[in-house]
Design a protein around this nucleic acid. Sequence first.
RNA 1: GCCGGAGUGGCGGAAUUGGCAUACGCGAUCGACUCAAAAUCGAUUGCCCUUGCGGGCUUGUGGGUUCGAGUCCCACCUCCGGCACCA
Length: 836
Amino acid sequence: MSAYEPKRIESKWQAVWAEEHTWEVANPGQPGFAPEKPKAYVLEMLPYPSGEPHVGHLKCYAVGDAIAHFRRRHGFQVIHPMGYDSFGLPAENNAIKTGEPPRVATERSIDSFRRQFRSWGISIDWSRELATHTPEYYRWTQWIFLQLLENGLAYRTQAPVQWCPKDATVLANEQVVDGRCERCGTPVVQRNLEQWFFRITDYADRLLADFDSLDSWPEHVVTMQRNWIGRSEGAEVVFRCDEVGLDFPVFTTRPDTLFGATFFVLAPEHPELERLVAGTPAEAAVREYVDRVGRESAEERGAEDREKTGVALGRSVVNPVNGERIPMYVADYVLMEYGTGAIMAVPGHDSRDYEFARAFELPLSRVIEGSDPEAARDDDGLPYPGDGPMVNSGRFDGKHNRDAYAEIVAWLEVEGRGRTAVNFRLRDWLVSRQRYWGAPIPVVYCEACGAEGEPAIVPIPADQLPVELPEVEDYAPKGRSPLAAAEDWVSTSCPRCGGPARRETDTMDTFVDSSWYFLRYLDPGNEEAPWDRAAADHWFPVDQYIGGVEHAILHLMYARFFTKALADLGHIGAVEPFANLFTQGMITRDGAKMSKSRGNVVSPGEFVERYGADTARTYICFMGPPERGGDWTDEGVEGVNRFLARLWRLGEEVEQRTDPGEWEAATAGPESRQLMAKAHWAIDKATRDFSRGFQFNTVVAAVMELVNDCYRLKDGLFESADGAAALRFATTTAASLIFPFAPHLASEVFERLRGERVWEQPWPEADPALLAADTVTLVVQVNGKLRDRIEAAAEADRDELLELARGSEKVGRHLDGKEVVKEVVVPGKLVNFVVR
RNA sequence: GCCGGAGUGGCGGAAUUGGCAUACGCGAUCGACUCAAAAUCGAUUGCCCUUGCGGGCUUGUGGGUUCGAGUCCCACCUCCGGCACCA
């Protein structure tokens, strides 16, 4: 008998799959397309190729591949492609350090990723491979940009934006975490810059509403996106400043507290501040305050428990509900990017306004009664955020605030001083980056086509795409894109008038690249269009998407937005890209995230070299439910490796000691029947757990049990023809069920015993006749306590079971001298005597 | 503070509809094989009392519902993740 040598069988089967293009699928209308099969689009998030793949990649693709195999063997035509998110900052930062062009380092990483993915035996359709940094791909990224631009969904404007000083580029709101750059951790600062945006806010309501169609998405991902989008219903109310003749609209979710407004606050970035204080005694102090705030990082400004600061403007506005004049302030607790950048302050019912009022000794006013004295910070029970009858509110006094809410808004509307309004936390997506390694934004600026001294933005015609990324000498960012130094490239002619024009030098956020790659896979070689509509209509949307939860907001929300926009523009049918989403948990080691500095990194390359891909994949799936994290232990790996070797040896022994063809109907003897029943139990268990939220750990456990039973029973079974047949059946079944996790070993064992290719076989079906046991273990309880277990006929009725239970000596001991007040019988399961 | 998720042996974890708690794996102990070791095969392994038979206890804590609760309800504790001056 030969030992289990993973390297040998893994390279053998990988060669077969590569040579025969086993996992490739054709598009509708092409040769090889199977119109009779239902389709399944199984997709894992594409990797950012940097260095070598890590254990997180291995987990993602192991899980996705198991799903793809399971679907194939259920008769689906599965499209399962792979690509690389190959634009991005790490390659560029490396270039700044070493001078090596990003393209060279990136393509080296891609080679290494591709090699490893092949060595893992993942069933990928390599004919659809793509990389987002290639002109063949980003040509269409640019095309989509132009589609958005033409349809008013992309625009350029000046706005306060987040700037990362270290990476020397602007960032989208989503890429700022706790006031720091998501990528490098540097505190970001605000700058007022002209930038490109995508109008994702137009889709805010639909991004929320369409969650209804995504019922298999993990709840926490949906919650995170909901929070991020942050829809609030309320009212816009206009306060007028007579002194300068300006209207100041505010957004409030509490129009019922309007009568309690005692002051008014503007954000330091508010555009009308200058006009309000110019030439007044407050001017110097306000200017100093605004400057000070402007120098602070977002992190400092957003710090917890920060003292309220601000400056009085010496101006006032009129409260539209009661005509009261209230003083205006500037304070940094009001944010320019939310609402209108101005608020009415109701210190009696809002804790932030309360803190400011305390600090500046401003008056409080209660307009809603009823309080929870425990929660209040004040003797008057203020601030009070809850509901109750209204007071100090003119003709609304005595009304419940919830009822008054709509009446106040309706009244304001009649007066022309307000209206209902919905406000979102979500901002438009800032997509321009002052960096090199990304898709160039395909527009030029033309003086001749412009007007009033402003150059016109002229899009590059689609047939002249791609706007290729030029080679440059110096990748270092200098506050503008390194592309600005490529004078030959920047200086061009206007596609509209033919006169001199200058190219846009910013590139696109790499999240743009990954917001549509799942569509390009459907028709990756198409040179006429980003995809063929018929191919997209057939394959799209993705049926099962798999990836890390760290993309819960950014990537998943952007991709949803793109899909909706592209559907609106008539390019695809579906409005949601990912019908089902599975987020895998993170693998740790010694309870901590793997990192070079901790020295606890498991390298998949070295690991697969030593143990084989089958062990790596099966172990990852056995660690625990894949949506949860898991701690990697070397002992656990050994256990799984031992199990696979055990299956291997079983296969060898069965092959040598039994004859082919013996695997049919083998239930003559009691032991062979027992093993057949176990095999069918494993089929049933594996199938159910696979379908029930991908519980791979218990699927693997079921196959382990089957193999254990084979070992327990095999010495006796080899003696008889029916026993040998049962062993053949059980062993091939174990191979068949483990195939989604250990495809190489499974293919080898299956081929040896059956002469067939396991992936071409349908997933096994459990025989109900063998699932149903003849006898069951009857549990007998007295007062709910387990007293005995008795073998009983499966179909025994209530009276028979009771009689059987009473007959037990162990049970009788606990019934002696007691009065049985109740008998509970669950047929096929248990009897419980309640005694007194 | 708000919103999610989770607490089960020495460890990772299982328990599908309220019905045998601890499947499977790891670790540990013992045995077989071996000159020996490794590998392999087999047995035992929640905790406490007991020589044994047997008995008691046990799913973060405290209560409740039920013949019966890891599972349902109430209160609380701890840990993890997300959001947080969002008007």
